[in-house]
Computed example of a mutant assay.
Amino acid sequence: MNVMVLIVAIAVVAWGLTALLRRYALARSLMDIPNARSSHSQPTPRGGGVAIVVAFLLGLCVASATGLDLPAEIYYSLLGSGSAIALLGFLDDHGHIAARWRLLGHFAAAAWALFWLGGLPPLVILGHSVDFGWSGYLLASLYLVWLLNLYNFMDGIDGIASIEAICVCLGGALLYVLHGYTDAAVLPLLLSFAVAGFLYWNFPPAKIFMGDAGSGFLGVVLGVLSLQAAWIDQSLLWGWLILLGIFVVDATFTLLRRLLRGDKVYEAHRSHAYQYASRQFGRHLPVTLAVAAINLCWLLPVAVWVAQGGDGLIGLLLAYLPLIVLAIKFRAGELERK
């Protein structure tokens, strides 16, 4: 099957499934009701991220079945870990699952993904090659679990998680093309178009929310794709980490600040920088569009510079520094003033 036909078809599938899920949620009163910790003010259907899951996994299976040169390790890694996290999130969306069981499921999914991927490859850090060995499995599992959780934390205003995924995937696909690995660009393109179909319904003001099934799925799939990139060419991992910078910096900075203050970090809150920014501007749209602009105008050029021979760690620090400044400016992790 032609790749362009496949990715456009996946976008249409995601769009149509989201419409059906919205009708289902409205009929069954599966609504996200605003509360003191919400960033929205109107009851809104939830669970639309299931459309992203179904559309992407369908595209993954079609790509494999039609001979698009999809390595078995990435196919089974994505299929197993993505399905498990989506199912866990779906169950949590429809009835609370204790945090310890969710976390156990997250690590089990990460272990499955890493069984197929092989942990972390040797990385060049400041000119020195570092072979992580078995510790690479531990570091990679922590990375995957943190990424899927932070993606859930950052899915708090209309369109932001969708815009971030699209920008990261399109940027990752561009890095592959620049390196000459055009076949590897298929998977991030598939994911970006699946999310684009959902974004039609999630763009501010959102007509349906993603839910934990969608946000957790996006987090783990982006994590797996970034680790796959490391095995293709280690400089590509730095590029993916740079592209993920907005979510990584905001979520990590906020978590550390709340930990230092002694907060219960598993409790819901609205103290991320993007949440403060949306309240300051009085709307979600300016913040969501700013995320797209930062990705395209700042993080992508830095990632391209690293892909063309720049030092990965220096590029990462260069990319993250302005994001840390923004996190401080928009009070990430601070207690909300009464």
Rank of each mutant, 00 (worst) to 15 (best):
A9I: 01
V12N: 03
A14D: 00
G16E: 02
A19I: 02
A25Y: 04
L30H: 14
D32V: 02
R37Y: 09
S39I: 07
H40D: 02
P43M: 06
R46G: 14
G47K: 09
V50D: 07
A51R: 06
V54Y: 10
F56P: 08
L57S: 00
V62E: 05
S64F: 15
S64P: 11
A65E: 14
T66N: 11
S83T: 15
L87I: 14
F90K: 09
F90V: 11
L91V: 13
W101A: 14
R102Y: 12
H106Y: 14
A109E: 02
A113G: 05
F115D: 07
G118R: 00
V124H: 14
L126R: 05
H128R: 15
W134K: 13
Y137L: 10
A140T: 10
I157A: 10
A161N: 07
A161W: 03
S162H: 11
S162L: 07
I163M: 14
I166D: 11
I166G: 13
L170H: 03
G171W: 06
A173C: 04
V177R: 15
H179K: 15
G180E: 10
Y181C: 13
Y181H: 15
D183Q: 15
A184V: 12
L189G: 13
V195R: 07
A196T: 09
Y200K: 13
P204Y: 09
P204I: 06
P204T: 10
I208V: 13
M210W: 01
G211V: 11
D212E: 10
G214P: 03
G214Y: 05
S215T: 08
G216A: 10
F217S: 04
V221A: 09
L225V: 10
Q228G: 13
A230H: 08
I232G: 10
L241T: 00
L244E: 00
F247R: 00
V249G: 00
T252H: 00
T254D: 03
L260T: 09
L260K: 12
D263F: 03
D263A: 04
A268S: 15
H272M: 04
A273L: 10
A273W: 01
G282C: 04
T288K: 07
A292R: 05
N295A: 01
L296W: 12
C297R: 07
W298M: 04
V302Q: 01
W305G: 12
W305K: 14
V306H: 07
Q308V: 03
D311V: 13
L316K: 02
L318V: 11
L323H: 01
R331W: 07
R331Q: 12
A332Q: 07
L335P: 08
L335W: 08
